[in-house]
Amino acid sequence: MSTTVQTQTPSAETSEPPVRRKRKGGGAGSAALTLFTWLLALGFFMPVLWMVLTSFKQEADAASNPPKFFFTPTLDQYKAVFEAGAGGYLWNSVIATVVSTILVILLAIPAAYAVSIRPVEKTKDVLFFFISTKMLPVVAVIMPIYVVAGKLKVLDNIWTLVFLYTAMNLPLAVWMMRSFFQEVPREVLEAAQMDGASLMTTMRVVLIPMVAPGIASTALICVIFAWNEFFFALNLTAADAATVPIMLVSTMTSEGLYLARLSAASVLASLPVVLAGWIAQKQLVRGLSMGAIK
């Protein structure tokens, strides 16, 4: 059971044989394959590139046929998005995402401890219970949530979203944290307990620092899903608690086809998660597989 995150390291360490393997294909074939890969990647990325380009256009350039690849870039659309009140939506999204992620981590750490290091009986059943709630279609619970939230007067309240996003990401986080806890050598924890450290101290001083990278990648996954969530936001918020995805929808419906402005709003909406994902590519794999793939 290795602790290192291994993605490319094996080939880097045993550098000789893979290099020889590649030479076999011949220089021309290899170059052609590289070119093919690049073209494929650019084609696949094209919609994103197009969105970014469009966001720097004037509306007239955006809705042109044939499409304009060269134009005078402008920041007008970004200005317009902020003038239309993007700040409020962004703030709501930040609250819903950050607070729910913190809550998820606080709840998931002890729970993961109880299904890995000092496991309760029927650990597997507990784990399957958690993941089975991920399979519960949200649409099957939205009606009671809507009705109850209405009775409690918490419709269009950002804390309702915080609560729901916590519930949405918690099962995932328990699974992920468990996989990180399982990599902590038992001897270290036993040694701490021998020295008379209490459970809380062991957790705080020994365990948490050791799994800090794991906590970071769990948080990353929670942030991605909370930031992008649309269904709850659509049904449970209106003017006050609306988040960024709602901003996009209202840009689309209220402004008609203002393509460039919509693109600018889309770029702004996607940017935080895209940047986070780019930076933490390796953690992404483990998070998406709920900790199963290291």
Partner: peptide
């Protein structure tokens, strides 16, 4: 990147 783009966007 396509996976990271907000689904609504």
């Amino acid at each position: 990147t396509p996976f990271l783009i907000m689904p609504v966007a």
